[in-house]
């Protein structure tokens, strides 16, 4: 039977609405990232931020990396916090653009508002995930569960009476090499 040898803490997959929200934010990251990466020129033109295309593409790559992290990792918490940091960067960039006399202030304000809204969601999600206590993980010792009547080293080859069916045998040429008994060309063992 299993023995509970000791307990230790290991994060298990979060569950419930926080994880659902995190998944949604992950997909949002991927979509926004793709839009920024492939539509940087149009986006810059719409915002009146021409000349910042490279920066927008870099932000797009960041969004995609974060989205992949959220969707693929067992614990998305650090990646959601990564989104919060990214939001701060976006808000700072848009804030600068609001002070730039060449940008379309009304459109930049819309973008700023949208990012601020998503930032609230990110913070709520990150807080909820962080607040979930990692469940302590008990370790179960199964070192007495061999399923064999004697120690493994004594059971090695106990089923050698079994004849491998012809369709599952390896070709003789691939069997372990043995030195030929008499001089001549080396032959694979048969």
């Amino acid at each position: 039977m299993a023995h509970h040898r000791h307990t230790r803490s290991r994060q298990t997959r979060p569950s419930g609405s926080a994880e659902t929200l995190a998944q949604g934010l992950g997909w949002f990251s991927l979509a926004l990232g793709a839009a920024e990466l492939f539509g940087a020129r149009s986006m810059a033109r719409w915002l009146g931020m021409e000349g910042n295309e490279r920066l927008i593409r870099a932000y797009g790559a960041r969004e995609i990396a974060t989205g992949i992290g959220i969707l693929t990792q067992r614990d998305p918490t650090p990646w959601i916090w990564g989104r919060v940091a990214g939001d701060a960067l976006d808000l700072a960039t848009l804030g600068n653009a609001l002070r730039d006399r060449h940008s379309h202030h009304d459109r930049v304000a819309v973008a700023f508002g949208a990012v601020a809204g998503v930032t609230v969601l990110d913070v709520v999600c990150a807080n909820a995930l962080t607040g979930q206590e990692p469940q302590p993980r008990r370790y179960f010792d199964y070192s007495d569960r061999s399923g064999l009547p004697r120690p493994p080293q004594q059971m090695r080859g106990a089923a050698r009476d079994f004849e491998v069916p012809r369709d599952m045998r390896i070709p003789d040429a691939m069997r372990p090499y043995k030195e030929p008994q008499r001089p001549g060309r080396p032959q694979p063992s048969m």
Binding site: Y139, F140, D141, Y142, S143, D144, R145, S146, G147, L148, P152, Q153, M155, R156
Partner: peptide, 12 residues
């Protein structure tokens, strides 16, 4: 997984 590894060791 530590439990799986301990069971694998038990099997030799």
């Amino acid at each position: 997984v530590p439990e799986r590894l301990s069971m694998a060791q038990a099997g030799g």
